[in-house]
Design a protein around this nucleic acid. Sequence first.
DNA 1: CATTTAAGGTACTCAACGTACCCTAAATGG
DNA 2: CCATTTAGGGTACGTTGAGTACCTTAAATG
Lengths: 209, 209
Amino acid sequence: MAAAEEDVRHGGSTPLRRRGPALEQAILQAAADELRESGYAGMTMDKVARRASTNKNTIYRRWPHRAALGVAAYRHLAEAQISVPDTGTLRGDALALLGQANATWSSPQGALLRDLLAAVGDDPRLLGLLREQADGSAMDAAWLTLLSRAVARGEAPPEAVHPRVASLPIALLRGEYTLRGAPSAPDTVLAEIVDEVFLPLVRGRAPSH
Amino acid sequence: MAAAEEDVRHGGSTPLRRRGPALEQAILQAAADELRESGYAGMTMDKVARRASTNKNTIYRRWPHRAALGVAAYRHLAEAQISVPDTGTLRGDALALLGQANATWSSPQGALLRDLLAAVGDDPRLLGLLREQADGSAMDAAWLTLLSRAVARGEAPPEAVHPRVASLPIALLRGEYTLRGAPSAPDTVLAEIVDEVFLPLVRGRAPSH
DNA sequence: CATTTAAGGTACTCAACGTACCCTAAATGG
DNA sequence: CCATTTAGGGTACGTTGAGTACCTTAAATG
């Protein structure tokens, strides 16, 4: 079961030795597969090299260390997908978006992301690359969109469109994770965040009534 | 500067070879020192052993692996100190407590805590030990205390005393960290969290106006 | 076709975790 | 007070995995 199933290119005029982008993609694919199967801890450079039918040397020519490859492979694996829900009510939208975040974080992919965040430590370049995925500006923008729509419908006062308000539900969800020790919260908790905090705050920010 | 300053017990009848609790404390102290000086990554078992004038064997008889020793040493180092502020106003209390949390997280000790949280991965026993320090129930209890006092003063409606409300400022502060990429927020951000979110929410939760 | 560039192969260094083994000081208890 | 058990000390391993050195060889380039 070594690494023979991918070497099916001995027949034609296809080059026997890959180069440049083709090789790079193969390495990223191999690394992403390792990430999925064995997690970041199990993604050793030797295994990636064997799986991509190449050698560590070639990998280190492209990425300076394992963490960098891990982050690159994660991005190759993720290709983030955030769809802004549109249910017609602020409450419905909020629940949907919060549920989406919850699902992502509690998925194996969320576990990967956490491992990688731990692994990059404080390298700002890698940190930035990771944050821009998954957690970053896309999510905040989505919440601001929800709020703007609610304002347009007359469901919320204009003052509610505020970055601090937008980041609140996700922040509370993550707080819930550290509280529970597991990156997953039941729907009742999501509803509580929306009904007990998010919506009251949106309304409480109405001009001094 | 190896490890000679602690070996000042050759004169009397004190035993030449430490045992049990004495030895255990010495190991924890050495490990805690390593944590302070070199961080968790730099706390190698060999260095701890040398610093405690003992050997790895003895350490592994007490802790099953490095992460466990790290957590134990952190606890030995921390001995958590949360003091509930009492400034006379809810706003003042909230700012003080939030500032306290911010200071802790941005201190070297906070960096340690983050490293350890990453290192224990998903071991529930160690995770529990860490969480009960620093971040855990003590902090939430402090916030509930603040809220109760505010209610007693007539500053807030009774509905405001709610665990989800209590956990909010800390959650937002941590959200700010991931946003900024560094575990430290300026006072203006703390004030914004309190004035733009926390206090409006506390008021917005008044019985259906 | 000659030369340069980059991939392949392999062996190696180094650090660090965790373990095995044997020796010896300290406690225990008859 | 001595014999036995217990636990610490010393040291040398086994193992894994990151990152490097160095040479060989295929592919691109002109």
